[in-house]
Design a protein around this nucleic acid. Structure first.
Lengths: 81, 81
DNA sequence: CCGGATGTGGGTTTATTAACCCACGAATAC
DNA sequence: GTATTCGTGGGTTAATAAACCCACATCCGG
């Protein structure tokens, strides 16, 4: 994946994560406890600064109480351009 | 995520990847060209040896012509135990 | 006013992913 | 029978994700 597209993908993912977290009315620190990751790292994920692995993705899904698929449920049109 | 569960998750992911690749009748090397990753790495992914990042996940999805979500479309019951 | 939670930004070290490459034997095709 | 493609297994090095930690300003409730 090209540098630019990769960055865009991570930002889209971050937005999706943020969306779900807020829908569940969880703070960074609350979610951090639920999914056993550091609270300050979650913000990095939501900003699209980190290219997380699927294990971390699943940790987040567990904490949020959704299927891992949900976290990738963003519009993927930008991938096709 | 506990060590054991993480391993199980990666194996489930690998199986799903293998399933889709075979359904599309692609060899490791063919898929490798389509998604621009090394052919010998794809086998490692399918064996669950590597905890890939979402950028690589998307590369695979692009090569396979499916939405990234599809690659996480495995049964996640083992996550809940 | 004060204690607690929150968002934010900035660090560190260690493990491991990404991105490569090579060689072999078996199966497939020409 | 040889050229191609395949699965397989085994490497390397550089980049970075994981897993931590800390400080501070703000906001809110008691």
């Amino acid at each position: 994946m090209q540098r630019k597209k990769k960055k865009e993908a991570l930002i889209q993912f971050g937005k999706r994560l943020s969306q779900i977290r807020k829908a569940k009315k969880l703070s960074f620190r609350q979610l951090a406890v639920l999914c056993d990751v550091d609270y300050s790292d979650i913000k990095k994920f939501e900003k699209g600064e980190v290219n997380i692995t699927i294990a971390t993705l699943m940790d987040l899904a567990i904490g949020l109480g959704v299927h891992p698929k949900e976290l990738l449920g963003f519009n993927d049109d930008f991938l096709k351009e």
